[in-house]
Write a protein that binds this DNA or RNA. Structure first.
Lengths: 187, 187
DNA sequence: TGTGCTTTTTGACGAATGTCAAAAAATAGT
DNA sequence: ACTATTTTTTGACATTCGTCAAAAAGCACA
């Protein structure tokens, strides 16, 4: 957990009191490959920090599973829309590998925000980074060819290619499995 | 300005003191159609609230202008990446109509965050809404056909279609001008 | 009310990529 | 090690959409 906190305060340093308060709210959760952390239709009431392992968020579209994000070591994980609005999730969260997570409930984090301005600041700053990441993905998705998308992933997120199946990667990039397989064959 | 503040506190109510402090930091700015609020390569040091008018953010790709967002009445406006990181902007911000804006500098807003926890909270909540909006656009862009994208825009953002030229809308949707023109012809 | 500039439309064509179906390869479980 | 299941690859084909080029329409401003 110490290691995890070190990563969290990378976003923004926290005073000892805030750091301890946060640590006290975190509950460890260990899950096995393929298990679901969240099922479509349920409200996501927790924010998670991924200490070890890998996850994906996916939703169903015309009977196909569309993976729209991956999470790895030290990432924040939640169904963002559901967690922030309190509405049922449209997505599922699944374990791609056996993983160790630390959970914090929405109530607890709300209380932490009230007690520790610096924790809300940390989250505000984390949001900025996540927003920028999403913007980049968006720009790529809109104007790059399938091959360019794969090359970009290979350069910037090689861990995804190493740890995730081809089918998941294809839908993540917004291309068909067959196209991705053909592209990969060229390398 | 009163009207504008009403809209801002829609995200989260502010105590009088915070509201006044915010109001004192806002500087009115009036600009004409086609003027640039921000030029690519410069650092965006302000966050703006758009009281009246319309703007677009665009960047250059292979000699083409790609509009990647629009802003209308009561929207927050900035080059998000540049404003939050302090790096040079990759995008330009241009006036689509004569507009009235209220500007706040990064230094001022940072100071407001320090003085008024509730203002930082308001921004944190605003970020959540903007993030969700971007997620929705992203999912659309990735899996809808050109025609579906146009229909979605027609239903959810008709004001864009009414107030913006076809060329800008096409690049916003990630499709060519010609394709959009043909789709429109079908209605 | 012309004249020039910008935006939109139309047509012809080609390239990139999706779809369907089946084979091949890899993986997991017993 | 063998079988069943899942994942990846391959092939044939259809289709959407982009590109280039030119015409038409719309608009601004003298």
């Amino acid at each position: 957990m110490e290691h995890l906190l070190t990563h969290i305060i990378n976003y923004h340093p926290l005073p000892e009191a805030a750091k301890n308060a946060l640590a006290n709210c975190l509950v460890k959760k260990t899950m096995a490959k393929n298990e679901l952390l969240l099922t479509e239709g349920r409200v996501c009431r927790h924010l998670y920090f991924l200490e070890k392992g890998a996850l994906r968020g996916f939703y169903n579209l015309d009977g196909k599973e569309i993976t729209h994000w991956f999470a790895f070591e030290n990432d924040f994980v939640t169904s963002f829309h559901s967690f922030t609005t309190g509405k049922p999730a449209v997505e599922n969260i699944q374990l791609l590998e056996g993983s160790v997570l630390w959970a914090i409930s929405k109530e607890d984090i709300t209380e932490l925000f009230n007690q520790h301005h610096e924790i809300e600041r940390l989250v505000r700053i984390a949001y900025e980074k996540y927003y920028i990441r999403l913007e980049e993905r968006f720009v790529n998705a809109q104007f790059k060819t399938a091959k360019e998308l794969y090359e970009t992933l290979l350069i910037h997120n090689p861990h995804i290619i190493e740890r995730v199946s081809l089918g998941c990667i294809a839908s993540y990039l917004g291309i068909s499995q067959e196209t991705l397989s053909r592209i990969r064959g060229q390398f």
